[in-house]
Design a protein around this nucleic acid. Structure first.
Length: 662
RNA sequence: GCGCCCGUAGCUCAGCUGGACAGAGCAUCGGCCUUCUAAGCCGAGGGUCCCAGGUUCGAGUCCUGGCGGGCGCGCCA
């Protein structure tokens, strides 16, 4: 854990800079702490002398020398040396560091139950069909973001928005009645089947084609949509059955990936509890929303928007200087999606002045899963909403709409909330031509670089299918290597591996990169993959298992023996290799910090891979069991132990477990 | 038309608030299992960091202008 050392070093450097050059306050340059290219040069490096060179009118080299001489003792630091080119290089106290940390769990700080709360909303899959790989990217990114925040001790509430009254569910109601000729009782019976989400996947594709064959049929969709929004009718009841059942299927799929939620927010409750009318009053009374008397938007309630991208393409040249407006309430009095979202966003920040009712959605889960409700709460729900910061995990195509949410907050004068209303965006998952072909789709436009996933067309890789294939492949490998395992054991391990494979695949790309999904690549357990990371930890664990079997020495005994050992194995020069692994393992807190500053979970994934690589190299170079020199053996074991602890924590932040064997 | 994102090795991608040598995985080729599990390790080849200017002691990284690709811009969600 390096951040405390970084801070101590910065503080010491700042006072040295003030002493030596009289620089203070705003004139103080920010002090970056980096890592030198190799351990021989040092463990930390500070390039601040380059910047000071201008102010102090001295050569960087000389400044670095003066800083190193003047610095004084810093906790955990053994030596400070100026580099010929001007860096200040810092060497940590290796023996003290490893002795103090091997075998120590370094537990994450517990969140202050009264501290500021961060809401992360993710997943939000339309409850009308099975989840696919595009949804997986959303859920894995969102879940990992939540874990990163919790690692830093932040109080986090995970919400999953359920659009149970939208077009997609309405389409299913239409499809079941018109195409499948099913009664409400038929639908209820079918929905009880475990494969209901897969069944809906196909029916949804069918109804899309059915609409296309005769656009007049879209009137039925509009009719169903109105019935859903109104509620209290047969179609709405049917929709509720479909949505609830599909949501439970989605929860099961996500549970396979260790993804869970604190609250399911149902759009139907937002409608029934009239959240929108509250938001409407607030926006209208503040004059943020107005109603033009003339023009093409006459009779609508509109909000001015700042984004030039909103301009209608057809008249772009005509009235470019006109203020742009977004329709929030249509001239027929119905509210748009944006309006409902504004109301929801206001509620998240505790700015709506009203609240949901709540019910337990899953009785047995831990932590408990709650859902919003329109009828008075049962049990004793915790306080939801009231957030200090909100992250909405939604793909980049919604950037414009998400920007409107912050604008609405800003327009109401909620400046700090607007700043903390973050669209955590990411690019979409698409299919390679080969993957689309493998799914049986023949009409592929090969002039385009990839094929877009489409739930409407039924074109996409289902999440459960991907997990099943990965678990099959992993199970095969596990059995090959561990023939003594029972079927239960090997399939349990296979599931753990499959989860890591999917999760790692979904966060290893930076958010802004389009993922072109290729099945062979996703099924690979070699190289930069989740299983590679797990394998490294399993190897480390095996060392300790065998060490205990052969010598009776356990982890605690190794740790206890360190204090009385000579530290030569860690000495500068010959110990650089061993120390390099320890230092890399120590970076986790710094890496988490970096991942959050950049809102970029892939930073954590890359670090995890590099750490596993470092251990695997160490594993081959530095044997432990057969090392006869006791001090060397123990220090190596201590390094392996620290690696095992840190890598396990890293995997936990990524939502992955470590298998008992592989 | 306007806005956002992407452009680094054959392919897929890293490169932290500008800073020590442009790296990894896959693929190709060559080594390493009577050894703590080869889901691994070691080595080799492979790059005008899209182009052109600019800022800077220093630019893959920042600015401007292009080029190529993707996505947005609705009284849909």
């Amino acid at each position: 854990m390096l951040l405390p050392i970084h801070e101590a070093l910065r503080a010491a450097l700042r006072s040295a800079i003030t002493r030596l050059y009289g620089i203070d306050g705003d004139a103080m340059p920010s002090i970056a702490v980096q890592m030198p290219p190799n351990r021989g040069m040092g463990d930390l490096a500070v390039p601040v002398a380059f910047e000071l060179a201008r102010i102090a009118r001295k050569a960087p080299r000389q400044i670095a020398q003066e800083l190193a001489d003047d610095l004084g003792p810093v906790d955990g630091v053994a030596a400070v040396e100026p580099a010929p080119n001007g860096y200040v290089n810092v060497f940590l106290d290796r023996v003290a560091f490893l002795t103090g940390r091997a075998g120590v769990a370094d537990p994450e700080p517990a969140a202050d139950p009264n501290g500021p709360k961060t809401i992360v909303e993710h997943t939000a899959i339309n409850p009308n069909k099975a989840a696919h790989i595009g949804h997986l990217r959303n859920a894995v990114l969102g879940d990992t973001l939540g874990r990163l925040l919790r690692f830093q001790g932040r109080r986090v509430e995970i919400q999953n928005y359920i659009d149970d009254t939208g077009v997609q569910v309405a389409d299913m109601v239409v499809a079941f009645r018109e195409l499948e000729s099913m009664t409400p009782a038929d639908i209820e019976a079918r929905a009880a089947q475990p494969d209901f989400d897969y069944y809906c996947w196909d029916v949804y594709a069918k109804v899309t084609e059915w609409y296309e064959a005769d656009p007049a049929r879209l009137a039925l969709r509009a009719q169903a949509l109105h019935a859903l929004e109104a509620g209290g009718n047969e179609m709405a009841d049917t929709a509720a059955v479909i949505a609830e059942r599909i949501v439970r299927r989605h929860l099961a799929t996500m549970a396979r990936l260790h993804i869970g939620y604190d609250l399911l927010t149902w759009e139907g409750d937002i409608l029934r509890l009239k959240f929108w009318s509250r938001a409407f009053d607030i926006l209208r009374d503040a004059g943020v929303m107005t109603r033009p008397e003339t023009g093409k938007l006459a009779g609508c309630w509109v909000m001015p928007i700042e984004d030039a991208a909103a301009e209608d393409g057809e008249n772009a040249s005509g009235d470019a200087d006109e203020p742009r407006e977004k329709v929030i309430v249509r001239s027929d009095g119905t509210v748009t999606y944006v309006g409902k979202d504004i109301a929801y966003q206001f509620w998240k920040f505790g700015l709506l002045g009203t609240d949901f009712h709540y019910r337990r959605f899953v009785e047995t889960s831990d932590p408990p899963l709650w859902a919003t409700s329109s009828t008075p709460s049962e049990g004793a729900p915790p306080s939801f909403g009231q957030a200090d910061a909100v992250y909405n995990v939604i793909d980049t195509r919604q950037a414009y709409l998400q920007d409107l949410l912050a604008q609405a907050l800003q327009a109401m004068g909620h400046t700090s909330q607007a700043e903390r209303s973050v669209h955590f965006s990411y690019e979409m998952v698409t299919l390679s031509h080969g993957a689309a072909r493998a799914l049986g789709f023949t009409e592929i436009d090969t002039t385009r670089p990839f094929v877009e996933v489409s739930g409407r067309k039924g074109l996409g890789v289902k999440a459960d299918d991907l997990l099943d294939r990965l678990a099959d492949a992993a199970g095969h490998e596990v059995v090959k290597r561990n023939p003594d395992l029972t079927t239960d054991e090997s399939s349990q391990i296979a599931r753990v591996i499959a989860t890591a494979a999917v999760r790692y695949f979904m966060i290893k790309y930076s958010r802004g990169k389009v993922i072109v999904f290729d099945i062979d690549e996703a099924l690979s357990f070699e190289g930069e993959s989740g299983p590679y990371l797990q394998y490294a930890v399993v190897r480390a664990a095996n060392i300790f298992r065998k060490l205990h079997e052969r010598t009776g020495l356990d982890e605690a005994a190794v740790v206890a023996s360190l204090a009385s050992l000579p530290g030569d194995a860690l000495a500068r020069g010959e110990g650089d290799d061993l120390w390099g692994l320890v230092l890399e393992a120590a970076r986790l807190d710094e890496v988490v910090d970096q991942a959050l500053r950049g809102l970029e979970p892939s930073v954590l994934a890359k670090y995890a891979f590099g750490l596993a690589q470092a251990f695997n190299a160490f594993y081959h170079r530095a044997p432990i069991l057969k090392e006869e020199q006791v001090d060397l053996q123990r220090w190596r074991a201590a390094a392996a132990l620290y690696f095992k602890t840190q890598m396990t924590r890293t995997l936990t932040v990524m939502g992955c477990d470590v298998p008992s064997r592989m």
